[in-house]
Design a protein around this nucleic acid. Structure first.
Lengths: 173, 173
DNA sequence: CAGAGCATGTAAAGTGTTACATGATTTA
DNA sequence: TAAATCATGTAACACTTTACATGCTCTG
């Protein structure tokens, strides 16, 4: 497996992407980036991040450099030229990009249809409220950002809005 | 872990949901349902499905019944009353429902911004074409379905369209 | 009757989560 | 100087994938 001709997993690709966005950074910063992301799927646990970075170092996609003057053994990792190329290859994979991914909303939606009418209505109302709150949060966050950070916020926003639109169409019937 | 007070993982919840949708069915049918789903995250491998069903049987969420007259040892599983309750509990979890999940499109999008202008343009064009194709497919599939099967197709459609809209807004700039 | 598909399941390998362990650095 | 945060990492456990293994049933 561990040769450079092999492709990246979603997690490994995401790690490289974080390093690219942050520039030279510590594994700890990568970890924090995952912790702070809204996705609940990856917790950014040290047991996931450190081994992943070790793998990417081993495959030559990342390079490591010890920070002088810090006695914690703090390291900085950076994208190598190979790593950059591989990251681009991962990013331009059309088939993966247009896959729906793991969507907890879509996975649950058919179950809502079979709830009793009053329970369904109550749930839909709760969902709508929660979505509106989240949309407001994302809009506020988006105003404070620009460039690449904004890109992901805008897509998150678009997703939540498409969910809200779908929900409204459902409640009409 | 394995007691009924514990909640379901995304995969286990999805398995129960498949059983609910299909009605009494064989584990093999559950496996096929995952294989046929557009998500690339769960392959529906036997090494995932059979053990998961075993767990759900052990926790009393599914019941098992041997099909008479079939010498393959074909079994049918069905949702128990407890299983139904637990599935509903999983389905109405608002926090999970509005989480963005794992979105390969969103994960890759910031990387597209840093491609060279001609490469970015070419990629965006490819993406747009692929999304349009997928949308056409989903529309066709949606016409052939009704009820619950349509629900997920519509959400998939809404997702792909929100991606397309986002893409078009990007290419304008 | 041969081949495709149905049907069940396990073993090894890889990876993510949780929990633990350690210590340095910054901040109040 | 005490507490919070930075920073690295491992071990046990659980779960998914890949690959393998077995045999039945239907269709041409």
């Amino acid at each position: 497996m561990n040769n450079s001709t092999d492709s990246l997993t979603e997690f490994e690709g995401s790690v490289l992407a974080v390093v690219r966005r942050l520039g030279d950074c510590t594994p700890y910063q990568v970890r924090r980036a995952f912790e702070e992301s809204p996705s609940r799927e990856w917790s950014g646990s040290s047991g996931a991040v450190y081994p992943a970075i070790k793998r990417l170092l081993g495959r030559g996609f990342l390079a490591e450099e010890r920070s002088a003057g810090d006695k914690r053994g703090t390291k900085k990792v950076s994208l190598t030229k190979t790593g950059s190329t591989v990251l681009v290859g991962w990013a331009v994979d059309i088939g993966m990009a247009i896959s729906p991914g793991l969507d907890p909303f879509r996975a649950r939606s058919p179950e809502w249809q079979v709830l009793s009418a009053p329970r369904r209505k109550a749930h839909m109302k709760k969902l709508e409220r929660a979505l509106n709150e989240r949309i407001a949060e994302l809009r506020a966050a988006s105003r404070g950002e620009n460039g690449e950070a904004q890109t992901m916020l805008e897509l998150d926003l678009a997703l939540q809005q498409s969910r809200l639109n779908w929900l409204r169409k459902q409640t009409k019937n």
